[in-house]
């Protein structure tokens, strides 16, 4: 009797392990392009999951840039639905299509939804995540809100898993709180590297939650040409594309050597 129970427990555990590993394998991970971050993320950000980006009120543009970059990577040329709360546009400005185009996103594939408040924004997000023609749904909320609680985040996570559409929460001027997010980022602007053609988004990103791995903090630069993140470049124009698995330091020295040569 006891033995039978043990064997049954073992069988069920095995079943669970199989299911868990099975789901982990079917998840598609998209590399950010930043070698260290990708290593910590075990290959990149998971598609069809909920990711959160937090920032201070004054760092909204940097966080917007990060979210836009992540959405570009995860949406992969499909339609992007950007839902924003009206107050956020008043406070931090409207999303500028020219600027997005320069970052490598296609304005023709962006649908913008303005929501009165956090509740209607989240409802629209839940509906949108059911539409698998979309690549990603970005929900931009301003300030702390009770609307996005555990239940709401669970709802979005399940919807994202079902359809494979990535859910991105852009939380401006909000404090991180418990949720079912796969990853949670805290983003602020970082100094541009000392070069002539400065101005590409350089971001100080902290991965403050990662469901399947460690956390970390990296300076990332968005490469508008390759549409990927990368280590900040000390020299403006690299001749060759960088190797993905090289650490920050070697890339810096190699860049320096090229400069000297």
């Amino acid at each position: 009797m006891d033995g039978a129970r043990h064997s049954m427990l073992a069988r069920l555990k095995g079943e669970i392990d199989r299911l868990e590993s099975g789901t982990a394998e079917t998840l598609r991970r998209v590399p950010l392009g930043h070698a260290e971050a990708d290593a910590v993320l075990q290959g990149g950000l998971v598609q069809g999951a909920l990711h959160e980006v937090f920032c201070d009120g004054a760092q909204a543009p940097a966080a917007t840039g990060f979210a836009a970059g992540v959405a570009r990577l995860l949406a992969d040329q499909r339609f992007l639905l950007w839902i924003r709360q009206d107050f956020s546009a008043r406070e931090n400005g409207e999303l500028a299509m020219e600027g997005l185009a320069e970052l490598g996103l296609d304005p023709r594939r962006i649908v913008m939804v303005s929501a009165h408040d956090a509740d209607s924004a989240l409802r629209a997000a839940a509906d949108a995540l059911a539409c698998n023609a979309l690549g990603a749904v970005i929900t931009e909320l301003w300030g702390d809100t009770r609307a996005f609680d555990q239940v709401a985040s669970r709802k979005l996570t399940l919807a994202a898993q079902d359809s494979g559409v990535t859910a991105l929460m852009l939380r401006i001027a909000a404090a991180p709180q418990a949720s079912t997010a796969e990853t949670r980022w805290m983003v602020r602007a970082a100094h541009s590297p000392p070069s002539e053609d400065w101005g590409a988004p350089v971001l100080d990103t902290s991965l403050i939650r990662n469901r399947h791995g460690q956390t970390g903090r990296w300076i990332m630069e968005w490469n508008c040409d390759a549409c990927q993140f990368r280590e900040p470049q000390t020299h403006s124009r690299l001749v060759a594309a960088e190797v993905a698995d090289r650490s920050v330091r070697t890339s810096v020295t190699s860049a320096g050597q090229r400069l000297a040569g």
Binding site: A60, P61, T64, G65, A68, A89, R90, N92, G93, E94, L95, A96, M97, E98, G99, L100, A101, E102, L103, D106, P107, R108, D197, W198, G199, A200, P201, C224, D225, S236, R237
Partner: peptide
């Protein structure tokens, strides 16, 4: 045919236009 109207190509490497434009 709204999806076909092309956006002007990017001028150079650093973005010259902001990501957010104040109202």
């Amino acid at each position: 045919d709204a999806g076909d109207a092309p956006w002007p190509a990017r001028a150079d490497i650093p973005p010259l236009r902001p990501l957010r434009l104040l109202q």
